[in-house]
Design a protein around this nucleic acid. Structure first.
Length: 547
RNA sequence: GCCCCCGUAGCUCAGCUGGAUAGAGCGCCGGCCUUCUAAGCCGGAUGUCGGAGGUUCGAGUCCUCCCGGGGGCGCCA
């Protein structure tokens, strides 16, 4: 059965095309099919007539009147009336028949419920995120990056765009050396070096390393082993958090494989490289950056930037599509120079996309916790998970747009944990599970097989509102994926839960009166349960059967 | 000085790439459990959308400037 929302949309587009005729070009954008701001504006509204107005050179409301007639004819018994409103909107008032068919169509979707239509051109996206240095445990900020990148990848995959998750490990360079020196200092009882790392985890790690026979004398070996142990710990934290990476890329390997050397040679070949003050520079100021950048430091050591160009070239090759870098706000200055680096190689910088994640402030009892990885003062992701759980942590991190700062008040999250927005959504899911249990062991089977079109009494407003909400999931998934905006799914989950709670209030399910009503409502419950589980799943949040 | 993000209800934030009388959660006030989970529901109060111009049929949304908050501007990553 075809999807009723898609049918509606094509009816609107078809009517608009018919009215326009062949003599005019189509409007710049396709008409909206949206939820009107008020219930008495109908079930759906469209701006199609307003878009046609400049094309046809006629007043919007006149076009709307003709469009209403055309559309009414096309929709037949699905529509009760089409009204012209405001500056030229068309408000569609749909019949129960449309709602019942919409529910029936969703029932046949099974596990594909909410999946948007397959994209015409699937886009491979390699998402690199977290990539925190292996010099300490993940902090709360890492938790935001992890939740965001993972959820974007989940949305992309569900929308039909193959996504890969990648973590880039900076396992060499100055910070790793400071890290190794700090570990060695712990072992020998010496002073922590300037810009070194402190904190309990440094002591614990140095003990574990010594137990494994790694001593303070061979700093290079210590650096490798220390970084690897830390990396493994980060991986474990992420797994606990529900995030699994497809690939772990190593900066050190880029050197070992000769990829860094090769990229330097190629940059030289493209003629953007020069030497000055004993260092080797890339003339990025010719390519959109505000100043030139060092590739090889005074002393012969390659910079992080040089390896990063090699890394991004490799990612472009491996991705075969787009690459998405999820970076912290403090790295935003990195965008121009990275694009410039790729342009210097003759690659396409527009295949590189950035998501800049704003900061997370962990607040404890009104006071901001200091966050310094080097001093070992921070709230770790592990502590956060221990405190408020994976589900609440992910929801808190995801519910806000990535370009706004998150203030996470631990005390509040602990103290009022059952007022947490995530529980509101999970509760709706658990409530439905409870209804299905109450309806008997075969309730899900009955619901899935129900003929929801064979119902005689008219649908309750709450039923219609809920079904309409469920119909929106494919659009929400598409938007969340296309705009890299998983926070929309949090809002959608909350709205769906609210619509369900209203349905629950108004509509008795088990033992409902009327021909086919109980079966039909069981089916709506099942659809809502699947919708909530799917939405939470895209956020990496569990959907409990009981609470 | 330059670059990025933010400024919307008492608080924390949405606002579907320009649409109708700007929303949600928390908090506040008042109601609802002998009926499928009250972690729920219903009703109520609160807004110069930071400010000033501009673009057009229409601006919280786009452009310019200003104010305020945060972050960055390294031969660290």
């Amino acid at each position: 059965m075809s999807d009723p929302v898609t049918n509606l949309r094509s009816a609107v587009e078809g009517s608009a095309a018919a009215l326009r005729g062949d003599a005019h070009d189509p409007p710049a954008s396709s008409p909206t099919l949206e939820r009107p701001p008020r219930a008495d504006f109908g079930d759906f509204s469209t701006n199609a007539a307003m878009l046609l107005a400049p094309v046809l050179g006629e007043p919007p409301r006149e076009i709307a009147a003709r469009l209403a007639e055309e559309l009414g004819g096309r929709l037949g018994e699905d529509v009760e009336k089409v009204e012209v409103a405001g500056p030229g909107f068309l408000n569609l008032f749909l019949a129960d028949a449309w709602y019942r068919r919409a529910a029936a169509a969703m029932l046949t979707a099974g596990e594909d419920l909410g999946r948007p239509p397959a994209p015409e051109e699937p886009e491979r996206v390699l998402v690199e995120f977290v990539s925190a240095n292996p010099t300490g445990p993940l902090t709360a900020a890492g938790g935001r990056h992890a939740a965001y990148g993972d959820s974007v990848a989940r949305a992309l995959e569900f929308a039909g765009h193959p996504a890969a998750r990648e973590y880039y490990v900076n396992d060499r360079g100055g910070q790793i050396e400071r890290f190794a020196e700090s570990l060695a200092a712990r072992m020998t009882g010496g002073e922590t070096p300037e810009d070194g790392y402190e904190g309990e985890y440094v002591a614990e790690l140095s003990e574990r390393l010594q137990a494994d026979g790694v001593g303070p004398d061979d700093l290079d070996w210590l650096a490798r082993q220390g970084a690897e142990m830390m990396r493994a710990h980060i991986e474990e934290t992420l797994r606990r958090y529900g995030v699994e990476f497809d690939t772990w890329s190593s900066e050190r390997e880029l050197y070992d494989s000769g990829a860094v050397e090769q990229v330097l040679a190629d940059l030289r070949g493209h003629g953007h490289v020069y030497e000055s003050e004993g260092a080797v520079w890339l003339r990025t100021s010719d390519l959109g950056d505000d100043k030139d950048r060092v590739l090889i430091r005074f002393g012969g050591e390659g910079t992080y930037y040089l390896a990063d160009i090699a890394y991004h070239r490799q990612k472009l090759e491996r991705s075969g599509g787009r690459i998405l870098d999820v970076l912290g706000a403090d790295h935003h200055g990195y965008m121009d120079r990275l694009r410039a680096g790729l342009a210097a190689l003759g690659l396409e910088p527009e295949r590189l996309e950035f998501a800049i994640i704003q900061l997370v402030h962990v607040v404890d009892g009104g006071e901001r916790a200091q966050m310094s990885k080097r001093k070992g003062e921070f709230v770790t992701l592990d502590e956060l998970i221990d405190d408020i759980g994976v589900d609440a942590t992910r929801f808190f991190m995801l519910q806000r747009s990535h370009d706004t700062t998150v203030d996470l008040d631990l005390e509040l999250a602990r103290r009022t944990s059952n007022e947490n927005p995530v529980y509101y959504v999970q509760y709706a899911h658990a409530r439905i599970a409870s209804i299905l249990r109450k309806a008997g062991g075969d309730a899900e089977t009955r619901a899935a097989a129900a003929d929801v079109t064979a119902v005689s009494p008219p649908a309750e407003p709450a039923e219609r509102a809920l079904i309409k909400r469920l119909c929106e999931l494919p659009d929400e998934v598409s938007e969340a994926a296309a705009r890299r905006a998983p926070h929309r799914l949090c809002a959608y989950a909350t709205a769906t839960a609210a619509d369900f709670h209203a349905f629950y209030r108004d509509c008795q399910v088990v033992g409902a009166e009327g021909e086919g009503v109980e079966e039909s409502r069981l089916a709506i419950c099942l659809l809502t349960k699947r919708t909530i589980a799917r939405t939470l799943g895209l956020l990496g949040i569990s959907a409990p059967e009981r609470m």
